[in-house]
């Protein structure tokens, strides 16, 4: 309703319309290639959009796969306690060692006091090697064994332990148990800490020759040299004799 008088005014006002027309004509013309450039830009934007969508489409399956992998890793990995890399990593490992059963000593307790007093110092003076022989039931963890933390070993392994080869390791274990662990009641377990250093072959000092070994090698080399000189002399004597015969 209100627009009608304004519309009539606009149609009647020819001067104003002419002025607007003139001003429009004075404005810069629209470039001919502007629409082409616009359409090109639209295409570029569309390509960008498609690439973005594709990236998003590629991204989420990867995220899902990563989540599934993480879940599988969490649920399928064994608990920490069963991991077997304790010894190989060079970290100290707690090894439970059976205290030797002293079944034979039990009757000794019943012996009168005088007898026990005389026996006690004897026991102390026993060298460590003998002690090893006396205590065959002690469990010695092998450096490469995969279960150093097992508390109880089967009987077969006990037998192997009895014939154990690495006496030094045993001695170390033995000495450490003797020194650090107080005597526990029979049947209880004692904890000993073993490292790679306790295995003789891995001790760095064993990589080098001892002075005794070096002296022995020198002696052997000298003897070999003397023997070689004697042999050369014999050879030359033999050749001289042959030449004299000729």
């Amino acid at each position: 309703m209100k627009e009608d008088p304004i519309e009539t005014l606009r149609q009647q006002d020819t001067n104003l319309r002419d002025a607007i027309k003139l001003e429009e004509e004075a404005l810069p013309p629209m470039p001919a290639d502007l629409n082409a450039r616009l359409m090109q830009r639209v295409e570029e934007e569309r390509a960008k959009e498609v690439a973005k969508r594709r990236r998003v489409r590629m991204f989420w399956p990867l995220v899902a796969a990563a989540c599934v992998a993480a879940l599988i890793a969490v649920f399928l990995t064994p608990p920490k306690g069963t991991l077997e890399d304790g010894m190989s990593a060079g970290k100290p490992v707690a090894v439970k060692v059976d205290k030797p059963k002293r079944e034979k000593e039990v009757p000794q307790v019943e012996v009168p006091q005088k007898a026990t007093q005389t026996e006690a110092p004897q026991r102390i003076s026993i060298p460590s090697e003998e002690k090893v022989a006396e205590q065959p039931k002690m469990k010695r963890p092998a450096a490469t064994t995969s279960r150093p933390l097992l508390a109880q070993k089967p009987v077969a392994e006990k037998a192997v332990a009895e014939n154990a080869v690495a006496e030094e390791a045993v001695a170390v274990v033995e000495s450490s148990t003797e020194q650090s662990i107080p005597e526990t009641p029979r049947g209880e377990m004692a904890t000993v800490t073993l490292t790679e250093r306790d295995i003789p072959i891995t001790r760095p000092e064993n990589y080098q020759y001892t002075p005794e070994e070096i002296a022995l090698m020198k002696k052997q080399a000298n003897e070999a040299y003397l023997k070689w000189v004697e042999l050369e002399l014999e050879i030359s004597k033999y050749t001289l004799e042959k030449m004299a015969q000729k």
């Binding site: 810069p28 470039p31 502007l34 450039r37 616009l38 830009r41």
Partner: peptide, 13 residues
């Protein structure tokens, strides 16, 4: 005109 061309393209986008 340069500004007008840019705005023109932005408008249609």
């Amino acid at each position: 005109v340069e500004d007008a061309e840019e705005v023109y393209q932005d408008v249609f986008l």
